[in-house]
């Protein structure tokens, strides 16, 4: 087997009842890459991830995960993939050590005790190994979950909103850990809602209503939407924003603290903006990921309706 891409899926589709939850999603994740998977709630992120690790059978499309066919070789994929579910899914009525030990047994690790001891040591939970998992705080649960799904030293990590409900400093630690793992050649697919996390990914994909709208490196994603963005300062921002939204050529207006971010496909809009009543200051800024994602999210709906028969 050649060193295939960590994930290479084409045209994946999944239908629940008559609802098309994932609509022909294709994406590639290279080895050692941290791939950010973004999109609003209910956009099909979790379903896509479940199909990639063999938990769900796709209704259409095909693909490989670590070189294994996602339809026929789910068993091999499961052995080499670490999957962290969106909801904490370890056993709260087991102690920390019992959980790790149970997972180690499921993967039939050769030196189980050592592996568990090392994981506890790395986690810094060695002294609390006997504590019931249900009594851990959100941040600790998340670290435990990551340790548990790393126990069998997977080549690929699929993380479904791993940092939801985790405080900023724990999130920062978590991402540092992800980058250490990636440096060791482990591939990571991580879904998230946080922009700062999106910016820490090597590559990104944005999915809405089951469709993959854009994927690539951060700059590529930004460039793909061909938006120019300005930062506006002025009086009565709420009213100004409403007026701006009605101005022809304005694609979107987002409030950022004491200023507005105005985006447009028309790079020459700045002259129009400058003379608007109430505008004190206009400066051109680089379009950020957040501007693009908000734009994608608000326009995905329209695209979807247009695409539908």
């Amino acid at each position: 087997m050649k060193a295939a891409a960590a994930i290479d899926v084409r045209e994946l589709s999944k239908r629940f009842g008559d609802k098309l939850v994932v609509d022909r999603v294709s994406l590639q994740v290279q080895r050692g890459e941290i791939f950010g998977f973004l999109g609003p709630n209910g956009s099909g992120k979790t379903t896509s991830i479940r199909m990639m690790c063999g938990l769900l059978t796709p209704d259409g499309g095909e693909g490989h995960c670590l070189g294994y066919d996602i339809r026929r070789e789910a068993a091999q994929i499961k052995r080499q993939v670490g999957y962290m579910t969106q909801r904490f899914s370890y056993w709260e009525d087991l102690s920390i050590r019992e959980n790790l030990d149970f997972v180690a047994r499921l993967y039939q690790l050769p030196r189980r005790r050592e592996a568990v001891d090392r994981a506890l040591e790395d986690l810094g939970l060695a002294s609390r190994a006997r504590q019931l998992t249900g009594t851990l705080s959100g941040g600790w649960k998340q670290r435990l979950a990551l340790a548990a799904c790393m126990l069998h030293e997977p080549q690929l990590l699929l993380l479904d909103e791993p940092t939801a409900g985790v405080d900023p400093s724990a999130r920062r630690d978590f991402w540092e850990e992800l980058h250490r793992l990636a440096a060791r050649g482990i591939s990571v697919l991580v879904s998230t809602h946080y922009m700062d996390e999106a910016e820490r990914c090597h590559k990104l994909a944005y999915i809405a209503y089951g469709r993959l709208l854009v994927q690539g490196r951060g700059e590529e994603v930004i460039a793909s939407q061909k938006l120019s963005t300005w930062r506006l300062e002025g009086e009565d921002l709420v009213n100004l924003a409403q007026r701006l939204e009605r101005t022809p050529g304005v694609a979107q207006v987002i409030a950022f603290g004491a200023a507005l971010h105005v985006s447009s496909h028309d790079a020459g809009l700045m002259d129009t903006l400058r003379v608007l009543p109430g505008v004190r200051r206009v400066e051109t800024i680089a379009t950020g990921l957040e501007d693009v994602f908000v734009y994608l999210m608000s326009h995905a709906d329209d695209n979807f309706r247009q695409g539908a028969p």
């Binding site: 690790c53 068993a75 052995r79 993939v81 999957y83 579910t85 899914s89 370890y90 056993w91 499921l106």
Partner: peptide, 13 residues
């Protein structure tokens, strides 16, 4: 109910 089944199914078991 507790979502742990998903975790079980994602392992080789």
């Amino acid at each position: 109910e507790r979502g742990t089944m998903e975790n079980l199914l994602a392992t080789p078991v």
